[in-house]
């Protein structure tokens, strides 16, 4: 999982998680609410530069952005073209509208990418906990995050051992192997969950998962001021452009 690796090697990893979270979420909200192409462009550039500076290779970042872009592009085609009987028409306003939509969505995604690439899951979880997100959701996220990797490892090991015994010699066998991989993964997951539950019980588990994450850096005043200035500027600009442009 490349996002995970990038996040814990990020240069911004040890910065205060709440500040990063606030920055990403507030900027995202301004972007989405203002629906202005200019703001979207500014946000796209700023979060992009920040993310790349924090240690994500440019090419990789663009590749990550291209995933939602492809999706957005395909879905906006349906908006741009108007299918009438015997004609296909394009309206200039609609094209601008579609462009605006693509830009806004991309900038929103880039805000979230900034968070995902610089903040580890455990930090995000601790922020969500402070925001009083329901406990059951946090516990589920924690367990899922941990066991995705174990299941991936197991699936990888099984598929290797299948290949070693010519489990993919032709199309039919490889289909069958894939089915068997699925079923044995299921069984292993159940077995694993039982074992984990046993181990948790052995450590006095009593129906709620309580954990502490390591002490995090204090928020830096400099960063808070910079974020406040940036988001304040975006907000004022978006209000101004709504009413006076």
């Amino acid at each position: 999982m490349i996002i995970d690796k990038l996040s814990y090697n990020s240069k911004l990893r040890y910065e205060n998680a709440e500040v990063k979270f606030a920055f990403a979420v507030i900027t995202l909200l301004i972007c989405v609410i203002s629906r202005s192409a200019v703001i979207a462009l500014i946000v796209l550039v700023v979060t992009g530069v920040l993310t790349i500076k924090s240690g994500v290779p440019v090419f990789r970042y663009l590749k990550f952005l291209s995933i939602p872009f492809a999706f957005l592009f395909l879905s906006t085609i349906a908006i741009i073209f108007d299918f009438k009987p015997f004609y296909i028409t394009i309206n200039k306003n609609v094209v601008f509208y579609a462009l605006n939509l693509i830009l806004t969505s991309l900038s929103a995604v880039s805000c979230l990418y900034f968070l995902a690439f610089t903040t580890t899951i455990m930090d995000i979880l601790s922020v969500l906990k402070k925001l009083h997100c329901p406990k059951i959701i946090l516990e589920l996220m924690l367990l899922i995050y941990r066991f995705i990797f174990i299941l991936l490892d197991t699936a990888y090991a099984i598929s290797i051992s299948q290949k070693a015994r010519l489990g993919n010699i032709n199309y039919k066998t490889s289909l069958k192997s894939f089915g068997m991989l699925g079923s044995s993964l299921m069984l292993k997951a159940i077995k694993r969950s039982q074992n984990v539950y046993i181990a948790m019980q052995a450590r006095c588990y009593d129906d709620t998962i309580n954990v502490l994450s390591s002490k995090k850096a204090k928020p830096k005043v400099k960063h808070i001021i910079m974020i406040a200035l940036f988001d304040g500027f975006l907000l004022i600009f978006s209000i101004w452009s709504k009413f006076f442009l």
């Binding site: 580890t120 899951i121 455990m122 979880l125 924690l142 367990l143 995050y145 941990r146 066991f147 984990v196 181990a199 948790m200 450590r203 588990y205 998962i209 309580n210 954990v211 502490l212 994450s213 390591s214």
Partner: peptide, 13 residues
């Protein structure tokens, strides 16, 4: 045995 995302959380459990 280890079910948490980080070592620190794991030990605190």
């Amino acid at each position: 045995q280890l079910f948490c995302a980080s070592v620190y959380e794991e030990i605190s459990f």
